[in-house]
Amino acid sequence: MHEYSIVAALVDQVEAAARPHPTARIKRVHVAIGELAGVETELLATAFATFRGGTRCADAELTIDARPAAWRCPKCAATIARGAPLRCEPCGAPAKLASGDEIVLQRIELELDDDDDAKEAPDV
């Protein structure tokens, strides 16, 4: 259950990104999780719901973009069928993972306070 440790790192990163906007509310957190990243998206959502309390993410919603694994031949760019051996038979080349191992914080959505001058807010 490393999803809790992933959420701890995620919340740290979100709070760091939101630091220039100390009065803004964090409304939404967008992440991309690859099928082969080793992160279970449902557990991640549960962990986020549990862990966000007491942080600046307390009212934030988590949006998870689940990315399927995509394997390709590095030479001819052919797609390797799901579940097939990870090798391009015509080229004899080992397949490369084109996507599906992401554990990425994409963006956050901030609701700015009237007083928040986004450009000149002091760093806290």
Binding site: L10, I103, V104, L105, Q106
Partner: peptide, 16 residues
Amino acid sequence: PDVVPLEIQGRILADN
């Protein structure tokens, strides 16, 4: 108030 997106695109485990 405006809801503004803030692009990050960083690995969550960047610290690790």
